[in-house]
Simulated scan of single mutants.
Amino acid sequence: MSTDTLGNGAADAARETEPAEPRSASSGTGRRTLIAVTVSLVLAAGAITYGVLASPGEPQPKPVPTAAVSYEVSGSSTVKIDFIAHGKQAKSLTLSGSDLPWRKSVDVALGTEPTVRIVLDGKGGDAGCTVAVRGKHVQRSTATGPYGRATCSAPLPDARNASSPADENGETP
């Protein structure tokens, strides 16, 4: 019996304690509001971080309009060849003692003047240079004799004139 009394006494003591205070409706709403604000702040921070990381650091340069240019040197001599092409990156090349024929094709920026120069060696001979723009020969020149020289160039229209229908058909103005 003594065990029953102890067991019942503990149960009675537990019932005699003060009941828990009822939760007010405002404390539940406050917690939900706090969670909603926290979630909103996290989402906003994520969107800002994505925007900063996704945007390019520096503006990209506009593409430079170009034209296909072919340089050609032919003949029966040994020559020094200089060619200049201004494209996405300016190119200048000097070839000494070059055997012929020699050809080079590059895209050259509009508004520049692609040029090829040749100089024969001391033995002389004959050599010629040509420049073609978009497959159409624009200029030809010939060098003869010891240290003979020739230059071929083709001024390209600037970008303002590049959008004309004649240019799009491969013809130069």
Rank of each mutant, 00 (worst) to 15 (best):
D107I: 01
S76T: 15
Q139F: 09
L43R: 03
E21C: 07
E72D: 06
G87L: 06
A166E: 12
G145D: 04
G135T: 02
G135W: 08
L100F: 01
F83S: 07
G170I: 07
E58Y: 13
T151W: 02
S55L: 11
P63M: 03
R149M: 06
I118C: 02
L110E: 08
D4A: 12
S164V: 10
V37E: 00
E58I: 12
L43S: 07
V69E: 00
R160F: 08
T112H: 08
K91L: 13
T3Y: 13
P22T: 13
D82Y: 10
C129V: 02
P173H: 04
A14W: 06
E21D: 12
A36E: 09
F83N: 08
G122M: 04
E16D: 11
R31C: 05
P146R: 01
K62M: 13
S141K: 00
R32Y: 08
D82G: 00
S98H: 00
P101E: 00
Q139S: 14
A36H: 07
T94I: 13
L95Y: 06
G46T: 11
S163I: 13
T29M: 10
I84W: 11
Y50W: 14
S98I: 06
G145A: 03
V42L: 13
G128H: 05
P59V: 08
D126S: 14
A36T: 15
L100P: 07
T142E: 04
T66D: 00
S2M: 11
P114M: 02
S55N: 10
G9L: 13
A47P: 06
Q139P: 04
T112V: 02
V108D: 12
C129F: 00
T115E: 06
P61Q: 03
S2R: 04
S24C: 00
R140D: 04
L93I: 07
D12H: 07
V37N: 01
T3S: 14
P63E: 04
A20V: 14
L120Y: 10
A90M: 12
G7Q: 14
G87D: 01
T38C: 12
R149V: 15
N161S: 14
S26Y: 05
T17N: 09
R23K: 13
A45E: 01
T38F: 11
A150D: 03
S98M: 11
G57S: 14
R23M: 12
P165M: 01
K104R: 14
A127W: 00
S70V: 08
P114W: 00
I35R: 08
T78F: 05
G128C: 07
A132Q: 07
S74I: 14
R103F: 12
A127Q: 06
S77V: 03
L41R: 01
E171V: 09
G111K: 09
V108R: 00
T49G: 13
A67D: 03
L156D: 01
G125L: 07
R140L: 09
V52E: 03
P22I: 08
D158N: 15
L6R: 12
T29P: 06
A47R: 04
T66C: 02
R32D: 13
V64H: 04
G30C: 09
V73A: 14
R32N: 15
